[in-house]
Design a protein around this nucleic acid. Sequence first.
DNA 1: AGCGTATTTCGATAAACATCTACGTAGATA
DNA 2: TATCTACGTAGATGTTTATCGAAATACGCT
Lengths: 195, 195
Amino acid sequence: MTDDAPTPTDAIVTIFKAIADESRLKILAHLSAEPASVTDLAELTDLRPPTVSHHLSVLGGAGLVTAERRGTTRIYSFLPSGLDEARRSLSEERGLSAFSDDETLEAWEQKVLSVFLDGETVVQIPAGEKKRMVLVRWIAAKFEEGRDYPEREVNEIIKQHHIDSAYFRRMMVETGLMTRANGVYRKPATPGRSA
Amino acid sequence: MTDDAPTPTDAIVTIFKAIADESRLKILAHLSAEPASVTDLAELTDLRPPTVSHHLSVLGGAGLVTAERRGTTRIYSFLPSGLDEARRSLSEERGLSAFSDDETLEAWEQKVLSVFLDGETVVQIPAGEKKRMVLVRWIAAKFEEGRDYPEREVNEIIKQHHIDSAYFRRMMVETGLMTRANGVYRKPATPGRSA
DNA sequence: AGCGTATTTCGATAAACATCTACGTAGATA
DNA sequence: TATCTACGTAGATGTTTATCGAAATACGCT
């Protein structure tokens, strides 16, 4: 599988690249006021028609404008819906996280595990928060979902991998990987981790 | 007045340029999940630390991240408020129009007038919609605001500048530059054209 | 058919940029 | 004090890109 497939991430980057230019922003501003031809925009923006044509091509590639033939001229119009995706990326809390490549992230986590694990034993707790969490999640994977564990059993399982059972027990509860009710621990069902 | 002052438009363009890069989007994604150091981000993004440092500098210049010294390392954090301006530019209906430079626009209108006017006479009606509207507005400027004009007088005034009084009369009414009630014409007060 | 106008395409150029390696700097620790 | 580690800076390099003039294309009009 090559990497030249147009991913949704690419689409967003294309849109941002398209509007990250002063000339194109001016063009979009004029078009958002009313449709216009290339020569109109050239005079409005103080650019030569070929330059405007190029910018309109970029904007069109990002899905931000459309063209309609009107005799020999072409009337370009602004497509507000083209910005929807960009808005979502900036607005949603989860919008940006779409760009963290799960592939390299998984590879990185494997690397962290290979460094701090010796077989099934945690040989050292990393200093970085992100790296620590990789270990905590690895420990949490040793538990079954939806099953009740008394604290004694939780400690036993953790101690198979590291001496400080209290640390990992606390981390799992703090981060929601484990829940505690009436002294009984339980690993909730994963909401939607694996795609 | 030179043009090297940091205008609000520049700030927006800077922000868009900052997020219009896949590596920086990945970095922002990780930072939006949790603060991280340069080396952490370097491993996560599969880039060398100097490259990450450069990107963080760009993001910092756009007001999207902050750094906090933690011993020898620096913990970078995502600044969600840095995206507020960008969101506004994309969301508001009037957001994009902020980029249309009124200065060059006025100059362009003067140029259009100089081409299609001979003194006080319209020598030709331009083909482009935008250019036509410049002429229509110029004609409309010959009327006083808030005064009643019978159709006969409207035609007289227009004919001082162009023969086809019906065309300009209709255009002015269609575009709201003039209102017609009971056969009487009136130019409403300008809502907020001149800054 | 032939001409004029609007647009795109082509080729060139100069600037911006992402990325790297090599080096410099500043805290922390022994 | 010496050393180690994390970070930034400087310089180099290859790529992208914004812009232009010149030429090609498409369309309408006479």
